[in-house]
Amino acid sequence: MSGLRFAAWRVVLGLITLWLLSVIVFAAARVLPGDVGRAILGPLADARAVAALDHALGADRGALASYIEWSRGLLQGDFGVSYAYRTPVAPLVAVALGRSLRLACLILAVAVPPALAAGLTAAHFAGGRIDRLLTLGGLALTVVPEFVTAILAMLVFGIALRWLPISAEPPPGAGAGTWLRHLILPALPGAVALFGYLARTLREASLAALQSDYLRAAILKGLAWPAILVRHLLPNVLPLLLTVLAAQLSYLLGGLVVVETLFRYPGIGLLILSAGRAHDFPLLQASVLVLGAFVVAASLAADLAVRWLTPRAA
């Protein structure tokens, strides 16, 4: 299959995935107990007020009619109006996604280089003390829940030492330096968890490559380690790294709700959670769909990159 046909086929599959996702989210939102009017007005609100609000928001229409109208709007580029915020959904999602993307990029920047180095080093010294240290250390970091790392980081660096702010959102008009300073602590829990996972995965991939016939032959011929690393090992490991990172994108963008909560950083994960609690169907649907689109696009990009890096896989 040519690269172009492969890409086109994956785009079609991606669109089908997103459509199925929208149907699932829609159905899930409909089976949630309670309704939007009561979620906004509170559990003890007068039933007449709840009915009036549901009607005003259009939340009392039939499920199918709502879905069709929402789909029609989406095809015209309109994500609809949030029930809870009563403003267009698109800017709310864009702002939250922007925050999550910034945090995800910083986590990748912090976690990937050391994880790559640790994985390669552990493989190089496989079975030795350094390998055991890195492997066990990576495993330990993977299993520490984010909220533990986050609270520890806040207590130590934010409250005891006062080195870093514990609120992720910088003041309005802040420069890049301030912005970065505010995001360091929030990036830490995700980076720690990702480092442990990546390091162990890359160690296994590197070890497998190092034990392959052609690399053993290269080593026996006396090829220098830097040359082995650059010419043989990295080209073997990078495709796996890209695939793993693409798979981790949904976690990095939408799975850091605890981090977003603790560091006052309302990203897309927190937006999805609050939209679900508020029965805000248009906001929930748009948030999940946009997040899904990012994950599908990242997966496609990773697959294309892997095909390019490893032509034999084409």
Binding site: M154, R162, I166, T261, L262, P266, L270
Partner: peptide, 18 residues
């Protein structure tokens, strides 16, 4: 007014002088 999604970070913000 600083909005938080949970109580715990509010307490930490108070203790951290934020």
């Amino acid at each position: 007014f600083l909005f938080f999604a949970d109580q715990q970070p509010q307490i930490l913000a108070l203790l951290g002088d934020e």
